[in-house]
Amino acid sequence: MTAQPDATQPPRPPHDKAALAAFVDHTLLKPEATAADVAVLVEEGVALGVFSVCVSPSFVSLAVEMAAGRLAVATVCGFPSGKHMSDVKAFEAARSVADDADEVDMVIDVGTARAGRFDAVQADIAAVRAAVPADRVLKVIIESAALTDEQIIGACRAAEAAGADFVKTSTGFHPAGGASVHAVSLMARTVGVAGGGKLGVKASGGIRDFDSALEMIGAGATRLGLSGTAAVLSGFDRDTPAPASTDTY
């Protein structure tokens, strides 16, 4: 399995394809995805040397079987709206863990964060954390493009207090947009290792090229959610770049 960059230390700029690939959750969350698409995703991920593949919950078992320990398998919970009851999110996360998912990326109720009800945000995350054992990674998607700076800070602190391992910018499905350098930097300064905190920061949503990926890492991202991974990695081959991804995630 590809070694992840040390999430307890501020991220270092990657010096080659392998170093950049180690930041990546190679992602397929399209509703129309098929089992054949997941098989291709896993083989692409292995060939590219990414840290993990991220798939929908219904594909976790297949991805684990296909990966055969060659890379980690991540999935989502309460995706993409976050408007699920906490016990439903917890059950979904527990099922994914039972299917051998290594990591779970849960979506908070963004409206609750927008209302400033951060105790409720924390309780929602804590319910999922209780279903995801300590040896599995829990990432918390806060949908940063839909929040003010104050709300981003509040959501990040709620995630930290609830025992999350990462905070994550976006689902890639929200009309407000995906990751931004500003949001990643703010999240990193608030709870991330780049700011002296303990949490990883995952940038996802709309990262389609090499320069954007490096900007996110420079801002404090310790993980990247990408669907067009090959296009991003091709930045190390400027003479023959791959076409930029048009995917949203």
Rank of each mutant, 00 (worst) to 15 (best):
A146M: 12
V50Q: 04
L48R: 10
E43N: 14
A67L: 11
A72G: 08
S52D: 01
D135G: 00
C156P: 07
A146D: 13
A162W: 03
L71D: 05
A145S: 15
R114C: 11
G69T: 07
A161N: 02
V132N: 01
Q151S: 10
Q151G: 09
A120W: 05
V73I: 11
A130V: 03
R157W: 00
R136D: 02
L147D: 03
D124E: 15
A145F: 14
A67E: 07
A120E: 15
I125E: 02
A158T: 06
F91W: 11
A162I: 00
R136E: 08
F59Q: 11
A120G: 06
V132M: 09
G116D: 15
A155G: 08
E65P: 01
A101R: 05
D149H: 10
A98R: 15
A90V: 02
A134L: 13
V107S: 08
A164G: 12
D149L: 01
F59D: 06
T112V: 13
G49I: 11
V53T: 12
D105G: 07
A101Y: 09
F79R: 05
S96G: 03
T148S: 15
A164D: 05
A123S: 15
E150T: 11
S58A: 10
A146Y: 07
V46S: 06
V53E: 04
Q122H: 10
E44C: 04
D135W: 03
V55N: 04
V140L: 13
S144C: 14
T112W: 04
S81P: 01
L71A: 08
A74E: 00
